[in-house]
């Protein structure tokens, strides 16, 4: 039994996400190793790490798709291990790596999820999303016939169908050209400002994380190795951008505060 995290119960109720001593192990692999963090409501947290760092596993556990080996997860005040459904109705998820049915049109797909999330006046909501994400050109086309960028926008529309209080985004702008990527980021910023939505974002785009996230958790080999705002992390590692911080962590370079004068590579 892991030791309790001080204040976990209070944080579990007040935070959008509260994770305590979260561990996931498979037969020969420790995918997530004793991570704890809280995400205040309305904040945007970036989950950063290289391939195999444990980002996807952490997100899968936050969504209830995967049961942790040990630890506790509270989302929007609900214990995700004991009863995830009240929280699932108030959150949503988008990933370009999870498809929507190819043989349904975009509109039909959104209608399905409108029903599944019990969205009132779902058709109006769909029209609103079509307008906001500029999907007029392909809303009545089969999802399987869309370009990668269009699919990403559809996945984002699906994740917003229920006006979520918490949005988990796995590389939301992957496959988008810079113009469309910027449009989506701007849209997310506006949505967060208008709705107060909390966002957890896993991304390899450091500029995106710097722009959107107020807080960043750095993962490496399943462990949480650092945490702070982008500015704090850059200062801590004495770097001009987050990408250099990422490389420092990935390549086991020491933090500036742990180094002596003139030791920075």
């Amino acid at each position: 039994m892991p030791p309790p995290v001080p204040g976990h119960i209070e944080n579990a109720l007040s935070s959008a996400i509260s994770v305590a001593h979260l561990t996931k192990s498979y037969a020969k692999t420790l995918a997530v190793d004793d991570i704890s963090f809280d995400l205040p409501r309305g904040a945007t947290l970036g989950l950063l790490g290289g391939n195999g760092a444990g980002k996807t596993t952490t997100i899968a556990m936050l969504l209830g798709l995967l049961l942790p080996t040990s630890g506790r997860i509270h989302v929007l005040g609900h214990d995700m291990i004991a009863n995830r459904f009240p929280a699932l109705a108030r959150m949503n998820f988008s990933s370009p790596y999870v498809s929507l049915p190819f043989r349904l049109t975009v509109r039909q797909n959104l209608r399905v999820y409108g029903h599944l999330y019990n969205v009132p006046h779902a058709d109006e909501r769909i029209e609103q999303l079509v307008a906001e994400l500029d999907m007029y050109g392909f809303v009545d086309r089969l999802a399987g016939q869309l370009s990668a960028g269009q699919k990403t926008r559809v996945a984002l529309a699906k994740s917003l169908i229920n006006r979520p209080e918490l949005l988990l985004l796995d590389e939301p702008t992957a496959s988008l050209d810079p113009d469309m990527g910027d449009m989506v980021r701007t849209w997310l910023e506006n949505y967060r400002a208008a709705s107060g939505c909390t966002i957890l974002l896993a991304s390899h785009n450091m500029a995106e994380v710097s722009r959107l996230c107020s807080d960043v958790v750095m993962l490496k080999q399943g462990r949480m190795v650092d945490r702070g705002s982008p500015a704090e992390l850059m200062q801590r590692y004495d770097r001009a951008d987050l990408e250099q911080v990422f490389l420092d962590i990935a390549r086991d370079r020491l933090r500036a505060e742990d180094l002596g004068e003139g030791e920075r590579l």
């Binding site: 969504l63 699932l88 999870v98 498809s99 929507l100 049915p101 190819f102 999330y117």
Partner: peptide, 14 residues
């Protein structure tokens, strides 16, 4: 086949 289970199981669908 449509790789849609991931979306279904993270929706409120019991």
């Amino acid at each position: 086949w449509s790789r849609n289970l991931g979306h279904l199981f993270v929706s409120p669908l019991r």
